[in-house]
Amino acid sequence: MGYFLGLIVVLGALWLGLSGMFKPLLLTLSVISILISILLAARLNTVDREGVPYARTPNLFLYWGWLVIEIFKANWPVIRACVSADLDINPALVKVKTRCESDLAKTIFANSITLTPGTVTVEVEGDKLLVHALFEESATPDAFTEMDERSWRAADGRQAGKTTQVKA
């Protein structure tokens, strides 16, 4: 039931932030639309630990801040490769092993790799990720260990004991 409460709070905050008006008619409409969204989400079976990950929000925001800095550092070589006069790139496919177990942690890790310019996750199978990199020298397996560690801690650090067995 806590998941439903979290979803209601987030949807209400989204509605208030996007509309910014407090007339009674609009508030009634907001309540109706939030109820419809929650009914649809419940019917889709997406209201669970993965679909509503708001309990771990502080951890995720800490990770997010670190990731934005990392993204800006990784933007620079790609921009230089785009504008330099002669094309000088070294694309490669590398396999990366991850320690993340739950689907949420794996999703966060793979999305972080994709979000960083210069590396794209091509395929995920089990605990191995196939990564396409623009520069081979920047995509050694050691380059991903810190991101792996941090995303694992952000997503399921506390409940490492009771990992879920649901696999795709």
Partner: peptide
Amino acid sequence: RFPDFYTRLHAASVTDTG
């Protein structure tokens, strides 16, 4: 400019993030 689909993906992600 980039020669290949996968490398173009990297160039497009500069727009998406930075």
